[in-house]
Amino acid sequence: MSALARALRPFALVALGLAGWELLSRSGLTSPLLVPSLGRIGWELGRLATRLDSLAEVWQSLHRALVGFALAAVVGIAIGILMGRSRVAAAVFDPLLAGTYPVPKIALFPIFVFVFGIGSLSKIALVFLECLYPIVVTTYAGSRVVNRVLVWSALNMGASPARVLWRIVVPATAPYIFAGFRIALPVAMIVVIITEMLSSADGLGYLAMYSLASLKTDRMLAVAVAIALLGLGLDRVLVLVRDRVVFWERLDSYYA
């Protein structure tokens, strides 16, 4: 196979899908309401990216996802490292986590709405809760397997426990923490979009449902593409940050 064909191969399926879509939309077999042309979707996407009011919706969703994620990161890393370094903490939290992990936290959303109100706070709280689990679990797994010899050597050379934590445990756990981040970040986006679809007057999830209700399929698809690009972009940024922070370990499989 030629080099060109090999390089183009990953894009073949995407191109095929897009071509099929455009063909279907132009064939006249389907209503443009069901399958709008790529041009219409692109035009709506451009509108979404250039108008201030729609950018405000993007920001609203992004801000909810990121605040919830950041809170979960801080609390999750703390709990995870505590569990990894203390038997008592592990004995308390481990069964608690294992028992509540498979329970869909989204079911708590109605209660969160009553407690935190219908605005951003209830959504951020749910994002926090859903993101907490993967971050705690991976941090715990990582901080448990820190090389003991390193810890002993540092203690022996007179490092304080705080210094050992900061200079040895945290760096050794960092690759695991980032693995948890990569699971949690898409979850944050999912939860934000779902909660905005459920009850909101702003954000991309709301915009998607509103466009559907107004039979603006092209706009709805543009919002869907925007959400997809946002999820993809956040993941890419995270991988970039990871490669800079944890520069000593290569990312060779998708998860690690």
Binding site: P10, L13, V14, L33, L34, L185, P186, M189, I190, I193, I194, M197, G205, A208, M209, S211, L212, T217, M220, L221, V223, A224, I227, A228, G231, L232, L234, D235, Y254
Partner: peptide
């Protein structure tokens, strides 16, 4: 294609599928 679309929240397809 799978890895590229993996971080995309799949709920966004619900409105489309509903249609």
């Amino acid at each position: 294609v799978v890895f590229l679309t993996y971080p995309v929240p799949k709920v966004v397809f619900l409105p489309l599928f509903m249609l």
